[in-house]
Design a protein around this nucleic acid. Structure first.
Length: 371
DNA sequence: CAAGGGTTTCCTGTTT
DNA sequence: TAAACAGGAAACCCTT
């Protein structure tokens, strides 16, 4: 298969770079700061990985959590939302028990990852400090480093690999010591650091549309808004950050300009099959896991209600790598579904929608239609 | 490269 | 008065 071969080539290139010397691994870890050209597949989560956890902003925390949620295919709807107001300093002070309380089954994994990141290597810390002296690590400079996501690109392909050699190469890559240095310790598809309940939620996601099941993170962050968070969750739309590229959708008003300049530009492309209505459906299908975001009003009729509308919007935004998603915008997209009969109008009831005849996968006893 | 799908963003007006 | 709803318009990014 062409795609498999291509992936295999990428992996070969990445690995040949990674396994040269111990020193080169360190350079890879902090490559962007040293001006080393990294494979795009490796660069992606650079915003937080270039900064010690104690120095993380709230956005770094969100990105880090988002990474791990995505990496483990964890059902983010089960997460406690209190992490969204924490910065790295606060996060670093949490006990393991607090992690378990906030993040549930993912807590232990995150706790260990954070510890490793915090003191992952004296040599690396020393290197980091040296680099920091030369290149102040602020969100503006980090935006330079934010180009593509890593890990998920590789990992998401793992399940599609039929070529054992590529599969093994990928396993080796994702489990390599360089990843471990950064806290990426578990294999790409085995949630071995998660307990059985999280494994259960992984299984829950399997039968539905391949791309729609995995929520990234559960955020009820009314404080996660560009106006008060001009940090790394902002787009790069100015030439001093990277070549000009407009954001998706209608251009924002100029008032956001200063914020936009700092914003990390990420692809908002959603993988094929990840549609909003499927995302909503998947939140609803397992109400015991959705942390009160939404509920069924009438399951047999497909009537449902948003309980935490902004949180759902933030979650959707996370999935689409769009930190400025709001319920207002999400609801506009929902209204477009009326015409396509994916949703039906429910008059007079706020935050209530109903699945239409062109939706699927939500009815009891129904086998989800894979897209 | 063009067209179309599925949003995303903004906006104005209306309803609850 | 705020929040939600409605829907037009324009723009974006992706797939075909």
């Amino acid at each position: 298969m062409a795609a498999t071969c291509e992936l295999s080539n990428i992996l070969t290139n990445v690995m040949s770079t990674m396994y040269q010397t111990e020193e080169s691994q360190h350079i890879l870890c902090h490559g962007p700061l040293l001006g080393v050209q990294l494979p795009s597949e490796v660069l992606a989560h650079s915003s937080w990985y270039t900064v010690l956890p104690q120095l993380w902003t709230k956005n770094h925390v969100l990105e880090w959590i988002s990474y791990h949620v995505e990496k483990t295919n964890y059902d983010a709807s089960t997460l406690n939302m209190s992490f969204c107001s924490m910065d790295g300093s606060e996060l670093s002070r949490l006990s393991r028990e607090s992690f378990l309380s906030i993040f549930g089954p993912l807590g232990d994994h995150l706790y260990r990852s954070l510890r490793e990141l915090s003191g992952f290597d004296d040599e690396l810390n020393s290197l980091f400090n040296d680099i920091s002296d030369i290149l102040p690590i602020d969100d503006g400079s980090q935006s330079l480093l934010e180009t593509v996501r890593f890990g998920t690109t590789l990992e998401s392909n793992l399940s599609h690999l039929e070529d054992k050699e590529s599969y093994d190469a990928l396993n080796l890559l994702v489990n390599s010591s360089s990843w471990s240095d950064l806290g990426y310790e578990s294999g790409p598809t085995s949630p071995d650091s998660l307990d059985s309940s999280s494994a259960a939620s992984l299984r829950f996601q399997i039968p539905r549309s391949p791309d729609s099941g995995g929520s990234d993170s559960d955020i009820d962050c009314t404080d996660v808004k560009p106006t008060i968070m001009p940090e790394s969750f902002v787009k790069t739309e100015r030439s001093d950050c990277k070549p000009y590229k407009r954001g998706r959708g209608r251009p924002r008003k100029m008032s956001r300009g200063a914020v936009d300049c700092l914003e990390v530009k990420k692809s908002k492309h959603s993988p094929r099959g990840t549609h909003l209505w499927e995302f909503i459906r998947d939140i609803l299908i397992y109400p015991e896991l959705n942390n009160g975001l939404m509920k069924w009003e009438d399951r047999t009729e497909g009537v449902f209600k948003f309980l935490k509308s902004e949180a759902v919007a933030q979650l959707w935004g996370q999935k689409k790598k769009n930190s400025s998603m709001t319920y207002e915008k999400l609801s506009r997209a929902m209204r477009y579904y009326y015409k396509r009969e994916i949703l039906e109008r429910v008059d007079g009831r706020r935050l209530v929608y109903k699945f239409g005849k062109n939706s699927s996968g939500w009815k009891l006893g129904e086998v989800a239609v894979h897209s």
